[in-house]
Nucleic acid binder design. Structure first.
Lengths: 120, 120
DNA sequence: GGCTGGTTACAGAATTGTGCGTAATTTACA
DNA sequence: TGTAAATTACGCACAATTCTGTAACCAGCC
């Protein structure tokens, strides 16, 4: 990718949210504070390296707050910032959009007077 | 919500919207019908190949409708489907989220009353 | 031959995964 | 009591995989 700094906010947002993990991490973090190992447990298919990189990316974007506790064994907490929490419902909206478009994808119309299929 | 598919709808949505082009194409298509060459002109940095691939992906996702007119020279129109149009405000919301988090990113207080938030 | 939309073949860039190393402290065990 | 190993959250080097771009080619009518 180039070093192009886009002025389009949508592009900027997508630069952060693109990929498989960011929205998933948001999803797990909306429950509250999680530790690195918690997040790995939540999603066993992320490699530790990628998890660290993604968390760093979200931190840089101001979505996630990283809190390192001094002492050993190491302990680091992650939770959503204000912007991060405000982002959650938007992500959820995308999720429901997908669910609703299922009707369109399967060629059915959503709940209407003409349609009384056995719903899903 | 039930265990509809084995995968999360947010993940499915992001699988389609991830990357640099999908949201940009949505942005250009929300004005109305466009042809392949129009979209290339709108965004000169997409390669011919990628544009075709991305449009195909959006078509498969039910976001974009492809209409090939018979006759030569070839002519193909692209426009948003119903789901595609319903997606636009959600994308816009992500854009305004980014604009509003600017305050947080730049360390300014988000207190606003005399706040002219005109998105770019 | 040129126009348009699209595809294939190959190359190079970017992203992701694997495995090893590290820190200071606790526990395991002989 | 001493030594080894586990723990936790990474960083680094490297391999594998995926993504993107370039260029050429196709179709069929003017």
């Amino acid at each position: 990718m180039k070093d192009v700094v886009s002025r389009c906010p949508i592009e900027e947002t997508m630069r952060v949210l693109s990929g498989r993990w960011p929205t998933l991490l948001l999803y797990y973090l909306k429950d509250g504070t999680k530790r690195f190992s918690d997040l790995r447990r939540d999603n066993p298919t992320v490699s530790h390296r990628i998890l660290a990189l993604e968390l760093r990316k979200l931190e840089d974007a101001g979505i996630v707050r990283r809190t390192a506790h001094p002492g050993y064994p190491l302990r680091v907490d992650y939770d959503l910032t204000g912007p991060g929490r405000r982002l959650v419902p938007l992500i959820d909206a995308l999720g429901s959009w997908w669910v609703h478009t299922e009707d369109d994808r399967t060629g059915r119309s959503p709940i209407s007077e003409t349609n009384l299929d056995t719903a899903a």
